[in-house]
């Protein structure tokens, strides 16, 4: 999981040499392969994206805007922002702490810990929702206790936040761990020997060293947090204007014959995805040198 996230920067620092014919393919083969890739990605990635925007704008711009400023849609946008605003920083703090512990120290059971951190990646989102129902639902382990104290978790914002945190749990940690492992702890040791405090060292040495990786992790974590469907669907209760996040609102509109409106809200999420990718690409391009330096540490 870490590999595909941390792979991108490497490539940039390494210009490709034009090989002699013995180490590359015939021009015709190259053109064919590039063409094949374009066709495959066009078909599998671009076409669905285009479909979202075409369907969204089918009713015209004014219908599109009307669908987005509709009160329930705004409530869904607001809830999605709240959930991401809690889940992402929480996982960011966790990610930094976990990466510090795993990358800077050697201890028994480390590989087990890393495996457990990865676990939410391979657990079905539906299960991520189900476990919270089993814990906090009225029939669940803590249900009667919560009910007696008037605390609402399931079918309310806390449940949605918890399910989102579960699903986006590893993103930041898995981005930082391999990088910090590669960097080692030489810089930090030097800073400490020069008399810096532990916290200052972390703030002024470690953080600047990993800031771009941290940003990648946060970006992907945020995209997933705003877009999560399966886990949130199980714990939401689908109350219009109250516990519907944007992806759930898309489903509801879709089920109400409001296809254009469903695709309009979906297009906002697609724009978020495009923005995420654009920002990521921009950072890679703008700070290619800095990223390479981070890597080369």
């Amino acid at each position: 999981m870490a590999a595909e996230l941390s792979g991108a920067p490497l490539r940039i620092s390494r210009p490709v040499r034009r090989g002699r014919s013995a180490t590359t393919e015939a021009p015709a083969v190259r053109v064919a392969l590039v063409g094949l890739v374009f066709v495959f990605l066009g078909f599998f990635l671009m076409l669905p994206l285009v479909a979202v925007f075409v369907e969204a704008l089918r009713g015209g711009i004014s219908a599109y805007l009307a669908a987005i400023v509709e009160p329930d849609a705004l409530a869904a946008i607001r809830l999605t922002l709240i959930v991401a605003a809690i889940a992402v920083p929480a996982n960011m703090v966790f990610g930094v702490a976990a990466a510090w512990a795993v990358a800077k120290f050697e201890f028994k059971g480390k590989s087990l810990l890393v495996t457990l951190i990865d676990l939410p990646f391979s657990v079905s989102p539906v299960i991520s929702g189900l476990v919270y129902v089993l814990l906090f639902g009225a029939q669940g382990f803590f249900g009667p206790f919560l009910d007696a104290h008037g605390v609402e978790i399931i079918f309310a914002v806390p449940g949605i936040v918890l399910a989102t945190i579960f699903v986006t749990f590893p993103f930041v940690a898995r981005e930082l761990i391999p990088l910090m492992q590669e960097q080692g702890s030489g810089d930090e040791e030097a800073a400490l020997s020069l008399g810096a405090s532990g916290f200052t060292t972390f703030l002024l040495v470690t953080l600047p060293n990993v800031k771009w990786a941290l940003l990648y992790g946060v970006l992907l974590c945020n995209a997933r947090a705003m877009g999560e469907f399966g886990a949130v669907s199980v714990v939401s209760g689908h109350i219009r204007g109250l516990t519907n996040t944007m992806p759930l609102h898309v489903e509801i509109l879709y089920n109400e014959y409001s296809f254009a409106a469903a695709f309009a809200v979906a297009s906002l999420l697609a724009l978020l995805a495009l923005f995420t990718l654009a920002l990521k690409t921009f950072l890679e391009w703008r700070f290619a040198g800095a990223i390479a330096a981070e890597r080369a540490h």
Partner: peptide
């Protein structure tokens, strides 16, 4: 665009 599936919500991918 390779990373699009990471960034695009699955429900949006589903209806598209």
């Amino acid at each position: 665009v390779i990373d699009l599936p990471f960034a695009l919500p699955t429900a949006v991918a589903g209806i598209a």
